[in-house]
Computed example of a mutant assay.
Amino acid sequence: MATLRHICTLALCAAALVLAGCAGPRRVESSVNSYSTLTTLPSPPTYRFERLPSQQQHAAAFAPIEQLAEAALARVGLRRDDAHPRLIAQLGVEGGYATPRYWPYYGSYYGPASPYYGRWGWGLGYGGPWGWGWGMNWMMDAPPTLYHRRVSLVLRDAAGGQVVYETSALYEDVWTRDPDIYGVLFDQALSGFPQPPQGERTLRTDMQPAAKAAPKTAAEPAPAATK
């Protein structure tokens, strides 16, 4: 009985730590790969998006991703101009989840022989068929869910078609907050534009918790008139 009480106490302490962590900033650490032939900001610094066939098929669902990328591109000095672009921008996004390949507390249900071991689950497109959520599993031997998020961006010269900038950011962790996480990843992927360090690097960004709406107070009824 004492052992059971000890386990329950540890579980409650862990829950308190998780809830406390959710109230503070969360660190997004991603692996960024960037390659550039640009030496300065293009003149004029304009671009337009070019959608792949799959993105055209799900245009309404993909629009929020373009908005996040457009905001990140604006922060590095590029302006969207569909009529007079200097650059052509192609975007890519991925999202999925899996159980980790190694978890020191595996039970037989989640062990290497289990069908759940290391399996990825994927979405088809942003905002439509995808559905995101979060939760906690209190099974002591169950591994946490590992979330996979990746964005990519390719910039080509509009006149000649050659690629002048290629970058991507990959994030894998047990926590995520969509769609904000994609905006952070686009910012990280464009870090250092137009002359980022070539190749792979690790970037970290602290995400502030979402602001909570102020509670609404019901209006008190007016006092009845006295005669």
Rank of each mutant, 00 (worst) to 15 (best):
P144T: 09
A158T: 13
C22P: 01
D206E: 10
T217W: 03
L10Q: 12
R5L: 14
G183D: 02
L52V: 09
R48G: 04
Y102P: 11
Q195M: 08
E29F: 00
A189K: 04
M139L: 13
A224H: 07
S36Y: 00
L153V: 01
P179W: 11
F49L: 02
G118T: 07
R101L: 15
P115V: 14
P112A: 12
V184Y: 07
D173L: 04
L73Q: 05
T205C: 12
E66M: 00
A159R: 13
P44T: 02
P112M: 05
P44A: 07
Y102G: 02
E172Q: 15
C13M: 11
R119S: 07
A189R: 05
T46Q: 05
D206A: 13
G107K: 10
P64N: 04
A225S: 12
L124T: 13
L68S: 09
A60C: 12
A210H: 10
G127T: 07
Y47W: 00
W138H: 11
P45D: 02
L4C: 02
A158E: 15
L124C: 03
A225N: 04
L52D: 10
L10R: 04
R75K: 09
W134M: 14
V151R: 08
R149S: 04
F62M: 05
V76M: 08
G21A: 15
G111L: 09
G92V: 01
G199I: 13
